[in-house]
Each structure stands twice: as structure tokens, then as C-alpha cells.
């Protein structure tokens, strides 16, 4: 832990002392991100009523392949990328008419999105960005249980989208640190319950990520 703190301090000081402009990268890049995500309390709805599902927060990971537009590109300054991400959240509680009950299992979303981010370059190493992405996702309700009794074990393919914002820091002309936020949502996945009913649930997720992007 002490070594990690030292790394952060050294990194921060180098950012402050070495905050001069870096050349703006254009061309292909690849990146990897890690972070934390919170899946919002979900409403499950089936033919016999509504119930609530609440989840634990969890880590998330993603990888991107993209293209930095060259400076002065008529389409605007920014980048386009293909992103794969995975968010898996343990089910914590299930709320029914009788009350809230301990629940188990997890809901995992694997998504493949095409993102476009507009980036504001002002000549410094910091470059804020904002953007959006659309694509598809596969959401799996893995071994969901209520008080130990099975609820559902199913998966569904859904449409997915996200809004994103953050800030890039150019370590070198080809290496960026990216600190970002993603609002991820999907169309409602429908899962089959063990008793034969099917329920549709909301999927809305907040994610904070940090990652490195390497340009080529």
C-alpha cells in the first residue's frame, strides 16, 4: 500500500511539474480500463406484479480499439472506438409485497459498443471529452436466488447505449491516462423465472473508470 501511495504522489507531482503541452496524437489506438460500477435498483415486472432487485457494487473492466482524428478534422476533434466492457453485480436483496429478502446470484452485462467522443484540446496535456455510444449487450441473470430458493437463471440480448465524459492526460505523445464516467443503460432484458413466469427488469448502471490508451 505504501508503494502504491508513493507511485500516486510521484505521478501527481510529475503531472504538476511536467504539465506542458504534448503533441496531439492521431491515428489508431488501443486501451484498457478498470473501474467500479453501481447497478441501480431494478424493477422486475411480470404478469403477477412488480418486485425490486438491489445489487452490490462491483468492479468493471473494458477494452477499446479506436482511432484518434487528426487535428483540424472537419468531423471535429475527437475519437471513435469499439468498446467491449463487462459489468457483473451480485444480487443483494429482493423486495416483494411481504418485504425485503436476502437474495443471491449475479447480473452480468457484456456489451459491445461503438463510441464517439468529442475531445477539447487546448494545447495542454489535459483534454476533457464527452460522448456517447450505442451497441448490443448480453445480460445474464446467473443463478439468481431469493432466500436461497432459485429465482431465475437466464440471459437475454438487448440494445445498449451509454453516455460518457472524462478527462485525458497525455503522458507522452502516444500514451494517455483516461479518467472517465459512463452512464450505461439497455433495453429491458426478459428472463424466465423458475416457476415459468417471465419478468422484465430495468438495467441502468453508473460506472467510473481509469485506463490507459496507447497510440500507434
Amino acid at each position: 500500500m505504501k508503494q502504491i501511495s508513493q507511485v500516486i504522489i510521484i505521478f501527481s507531482l510529475s503531472v504538476l511539474l511536467y504539465g506542458q503541452a504534448a503533441a496531439q496524437h492521431s491515428g489508431p489506438y488501443a486501451g484498457a480500463f478498470i473501474g467500479g460500477n453501481a447497478l441501480l435498483n431494478a424493477k422486475g415486472a411480470d404478469s403477477v406484479g412488480n418486485f425490486g432487485l438491489s445489487f452490490d457494487k462491483a468492479l468493471t473492466g473494458s477494452a477499446v480499439l479506436g482511432w484518434d482524428f487528426e487535428p483540424g478534422n472537419p468531423a471535429g476533434e475527437g475519437r471513435i472506438e469499439l468498446e467491449y466492457s463487462r459489468r457483473s453485480n451480485p444480487l443483494n436483496r429482493a423486495r416483494f409485497a411481504e418485504g425485503s429478502f436476502k437474495a443471491g446470484g449475479s447480473v452480468t452485462a457484456d456489451s459491445l459498443l461503438v463510441n464517439f467522443f468529442g475531445v477539447h484540446h487546448d494545447g495542454s496535456r489535459f483534454a476533457p471529452y464527452i460522448g456517447a455510444g450505442v451497441g448490443v449487450g448480453r445480460i445474464e441473470s446467473a443463478s439468481l436466488t431469493v432466500t436461497g430458493a432459485p429465482l431465475a437463471n437466464d440471459s437475454a440480448v438487448v440494445l445498449a447505449c451509454q453516455l460518457g465524459a472524462g478527462i485525458d492526460y497525455a503522458l507522452t505523445d502516444y500514451l494517455n491516462v483516461d479518467l472517465g464516467y459512463r452512464f450505461f443503460s439497455s433495453s429491458k432484458p426478459t428472463f424466465t423465472e423458475v416457476n415459468g413466469h417471465t419478468f422484465a427488469m430495468n438495467y441502468v448502471n453508473h460506472t467510473a473508470v481509469i485506463g490507459l490508451r496507447v497510440g500507434f
Binding site: 500516486i8 478498470i34 473501474g35 467500479g36 460500477n37 453501481a38 447497478l39 441501480l40 435498483n41 431494478a42 424493477k43 422486475g44 411480470d46 403477477v48 406484479g49 412488480n50 418486485f51 425490486g52 432487485l53 438491489s54 445489487f55 457494487k57 429482493a94 423486495r95 416483494f96 409485497a97 411481504e98 429478502f101 436466488t145 431469493v146 432466500t147 430458493a149 432459485p150 429465482l151 423465472e193 423458475v194 416457476n195 430495468n202 441502468v204 453508473h206 460506472t207 467510473a208 481509469i210
Partner: peptide, 28 residues
Amino acid sequence: LLWSGLVILQLLAGCGFDGTATRKNDFT
């Protein structure tokens, strides 16, 4: 740094469905 982000997510996680559950628990 990661966990400070998670603190923010903790606040956001309080959002979402907070309506009245109408379905009976027939799983237990």
C-alpha cells in the same frame, strides 16, 4: 482513486426503483 469513484457510485446506487412491490414472494 478507484474507491473514491466507488463512493460516488454508492450515492448513485441509492437511485433506481423505489416503488411499491406488488408481487408476492412465491419463491421462498
